[in-house]
Computed example of a mutant assay.
Amino acid sequence: MNTPAVIEAGDRVGEHQVSIAMTAIAMCYTLGSVLGPIATGATVSCVSEHGLMISVGIVGVLFIAMLILRRVPAQE
């Protein structure tokens, strides 16, 4: 998922903002790599053995909500 994010950022940001965009991508990727297992482990411990599927479902719903809320208007 890192490579498509880098490609998308390179396409969308200006030449003077590329380093900032790459830093933001690396930060988000690292944060997700650290917090994801912790959140999933806590969900499995607190809820049940179905905690992994619950975590994946929650992340999916959040992703869809972000896509809906961040919809880019059609260009004419």
Rank of each mutant, 00 (worst) to 15 (best):
H16C: 09
L62Y: 10
Q17D: 01
I54R: 04
L62F: 15
S55W: 08
G60A: 14
I68Y: 15
L67A: 06
H50P: 03
L31E: 12
M1D: 08
G32D: 09
M27R: 07
V56T: 04
V72S: 00
G57H: 08
C46E: 14
T40C: 05
F63Y: 10
G51P: 04
I64Q: 07
I7A: 03
L67S: 07
A26F: 00
C46G: 10
A74D: 07
H50I: 10
P73M: 00
S55I: 10
V56K: 01
T30V: 15
T40H: 05
I68S: 11
T43A: 01
E15T: 13
E8T: 08
F63H: 10
M53I: 06
G32N: 09
M22T: 05
L67Q: 06
M66S: 10
V56M: 05
C28V: 05
T43I: 14
S45Y: 15
V47P: 06
N2H: 01
I54C: 04
V13I: 01
E15Q: 10
A9I: 01
R70W: 09
T43Q: 05
S33G: 14
G57I: 09
A9T: 03
R12G: 12
L69C: 00
G10N: 09
S48A: 14
I7L: 02
S19T: 13
A21Y: 09
I68T: 13
I64L: 15
I54A: 03
T40E: 02
R71Y: 01
A5P: 00
V59G: 04
M27E: 10
P4M: 01
L52T: 07
T3M: 13
G14L: 04
V34G: 01
L31N: 10
M53N: 01
V34H: 04
G32H: 07
I25W: 04
C28W: 10
G51M: 13
I20R: 13
S55C: 12
V47N: 04
G32Q: 07
H50A: 13
A65L: 13
R70S: 11
N2V: 02
H50F: 11
V61H: 12
H16P: 04
G41A: 10
A21S: 08
P37Q: 04
R12N: 14
L52V: 08
E15M: 07
L67T: 08
V47C: 07
F63C: 06
S45F: 15
L31A: 15
C28F: 11
L69I: 07
E15G: 03
G14W: 04
T40Q: 02
V59R: 03
